[in-house]
């Protein structure tokens, strides 16, 4: 038991754990919509396109998260705008914006002599989270969760039946923009923990694990948060003892939990099918 709690006597470990829990609270419930609405690619793209924002902010000594936020929101709106005209498929629009912005970010990085400073941006540095960043993450947590609760019935309806939503005057497009902006906020928070390259994992993997285990939306969000919190805790602990990259470990624990959930689902479906066969009930 001491093995589990001892590392968290250090203040930097406590701060890192708080950051991990906040990121879980932001990314996991939002991730459920990302998974159900098949927006995983857009999530990954958003995470990558914040790079130029981060680099420009770093080079000018501005607030990093502010720079990332501007870039992410600009991308979210840009993707919506490009694909709205239907001349371009959405995934193509994403592919262009995503790689273009990422390349721009790398170009900016290459103007600086020391590349090392940017490894934290690319791969995350949850152990170095500052109090200021915790406050910003808390603000993002409140905004994301409050919006998800307040617009729950609208997000639900536009997710499974956009046509009916439009028929009653509820613009599915606008709800999608709101979701994209929330995703941009989530990405900005998650980059602290796992970095640009792995951020989309936190949006997709815990939610994907939850979809294996339940078919009720609120429960799915709670399970996803649980998975993400366990992953943050376990990842931090392992990185403390083995002195390896915390961001990568957090993501790998997420994936391991997903595999467990996936296997559980597989076994449960098999058992149910076998049960129905013996009962002579057709599925």
């Amino acid at each position: 038991m001491d093995l589990l709690t001892a590392p968290f006597r250090y203040e930097f470990m406590q701060t890192a754990l708080i950051a991990g829990i906040l990121v879980a609270l932001i990314c996991a419930p939002l991730g459920v919509y990302v998974v159900l609405r098949r927006m995983a690619f857009i999530g990954d793209a958003l995470a990558h396109t914040v790079l130029p924002g981060l680099v420009v902010a770093y080079l000018n000594g501005w607030n990093l998260l502010g720079g990332a936020l501007i870039a992410a929101v600009a991308t979210a709106l840009g993707i919506g705008w490009f694909s709205r005209r239907q001349a371009l498929h959405e995934d193509t629009a994403i592919g262009i914006l995503f790689t273009g912005m990422f390349a721009l970010g790398i170009l900016f990085i290459s103007t600086v002599r020391s590349f090392k400073d940017f490894t934290h941006i690319l791969f995350g540095y949850i152990l170095g989270v500052t109090t200021e960043q915790i406050l910003l993450m808390s603000a993002i947590t409140v905004i994301v969760l409050a919006t998800l609760v307040a617009l729950r019935k609208e997000f639900e309806l536009t997710s499974f039946d956009p046509l009916y939503a439009e028929a009653i005057g509820l613009k599915a497009d606008r709800l999608r923009y709101v979701l994209l902006v929330l995703m941009a906020l989530a990405v900005v928070a998650a980059i602290q923990a796992v970095g640009v390259v792995l951020t989309s994992a936190l949006l997709v993997v815990p939610a994907a694990a939850a979809t294996m285990l339940t078919n009720r939306l609120p429960r799915m969000m709670v399970v996803a948060v649980g998975v993400a919190v366990i992953a943050a805790f376990t990842g931090l602990l392992l990185s403390f003892y083995f002195d390896v990259a915390s961001g990568a470990l957090i993501v790998l624990v997420c994936i391991a939990l997903f595999l467990v959930a996936w296997f559980t689902r597989l076994v449960r479906d098999r058992l149910r099918a076998a049960h129905q066969r013996t009962q002579g009930v057709s599925p």
Binding site: L157, S159, L217
Partner: peptide, 20 residues
């Protein structure tokens, strides 16, 4: 036209009729 895999109960689906 509807995504039937979405995790929502029949009652909640019918309840969307009240949204307007």
């Amino acid at each position: 036209e509807i995504d039937w895999r979405f995790p929502i109960s029949l009652r909640r689906l019918v309840a969307t009729g009240r949204h307007v």
